[in-house]
Design a protein around this nucleic acid. Structure first.
Length: 328
DNA sequence: CTAATTTGACCACT
DNA sequence: AGTGGTCAAATTAG
């Protein structure tokens, strides 16, 4: 991958990259609006409202980036999570990346997106590789890596832990970036989108993602009942702008108060797309196969994997050590 | 039979 | 030294 090298990317460049990607995101959202309105007239007003909100937030974020010098550094990219949006990277803290036979980079030098969510599905297929009791937590932490690690070398990882305050929810932290692609899903979206907006050539390569890694396909909700989709609409009060300022955190940070909103939008979009019939993988939020009775629902396999036009395509590196940090 | 999960041990980081 | 992240053999499910 095009590693942008050491972490000394000038803030200006990062900002302009972020703005550039926001523009792509905005275009994508507009394209998506057209697409959705054509697909589902019944819920057109709803889709319209959702997209308008997203557009509004994106525009707002762009304004902030355009006028504020340090905005980019403090408000890293949304949609980054595991899908390669890397506003900045720095190898400095992980410079001694000798991962020998066993362990790779560890601990809190790594950045992640942390979200609180009620669903563990995020459009990617994960494979559990470990579980650990955590010191001050009543719940164990489960570690997952992308299923495509073996065949595509994808370095995305995440861990999942039950929320202490609300056991019905999970804390999901994403590390690394998805370098994998799920060819079975991408064509389902791209032609339609591209067809809806032939003037936007970028649509072919830069579908938008409002989620930490890809669209969280909340097909449990969207796939089973239309009413659920409406609920998501009601929930989706806060949107992309908040992701811009809060989605990235250091491992030691506490959760952003907007994490919930973050996921709501994430799920919202997933619900929209899901209800539009884009996903057709049969498995609707079911439990993936595998052993015994896992502590957490295992890998979600409904792969609605948007290929993300990254916000600030500073994707660097080739392994899970290429996390970046937001040095002040 | 294949693939995913479980689980104990190992190892790096703080 | 304690804790957390990962590995890999054993186990389980489809």
């Amino acid at each position: 991958m095009a590693s942008s090298g050491g972490g000394d990317v000038p803030a200006q460049i990062r900002e302009s990259a972020a703005v550039s990607d926001l523009i792509v995101a905005r275009d994508g959202a507009e394209t998506l609006r057209t697409f959705l309105l054509q697909l589902d007239h019944q819920r057109a007003p709803w889709a319209q409202q959702v997209i308008e909100d997203v557009l509004s937030r994106v525009s707002s974020a762009m304004s902030v980036l355009a006028t504020s010098g340090g905005a980019a550094a403090e408000g890293p990219s949304p949609g980054a999570g595991s899908d390669g949006a890397r506003p900045q990277q720095s190898v400095s803290s992980c410079g001694n990346k000798r991962k020998q036979s066993g362990s790779s980079s560890r601990r809190s030098n790594r950045l992640c997106t942390r979200t609180i969510t009620s669903t563990l599905e995020d459009g990617h297929v994960w494979r559990k590789y470990g579980q650990k009791e955590i010191q001050n937590s009543p719940h164990p932490r489960s570690y997952y890596r992308c299923t495509h690690k073996s065949d595509q070398g994808c370095s995305a990882k995440r861990y999942v832990q039950r929320c202490e305050t609300d056991p019905s929810k999970h804390v999901v932290a994403y590390y690394g970036e998805h370098t994998c692609r799920d060819p079975s899903t991408i064509p389902l979206i791209v032609p339609a989108v591209a067809g809806a907006a032939p003037d936007d050539h970028r649509s072919n390569n830069n579908l938008i993602s409002f989620g930490p890694s890809a669209v969280t396909t909340n097909v449990n909700a969207a796939g089973s009942t239309g009413a659920s989709s409406s609920q998501y609409l009601a929930m989706g009060g806060s949107t992309a702008a908040e992701q811009l300022s809060t989605s990235w955190c250091t491992s030691d940070d506490v959760f952003s108060s907007s994490a919930g909103s973050f996921m709501q939008v994430d799920e919202l979009i997933g619900a929209v797309v899901g209800s539009a019939g884009v996903t057709d993988r049969g498995r609707l939020g079911g439990v993936a196969g595998g052993g015994g009775t896992p502590s957490f629902p295992p890998s979600p396999t409904n792969s609605l994997s948007f290929v993300v036009g990254s916000f600030g395509s500073i994707a660097g590196g080739e392994d899970d050590d290429d996390m970046f940090r937001l040095d002040r």
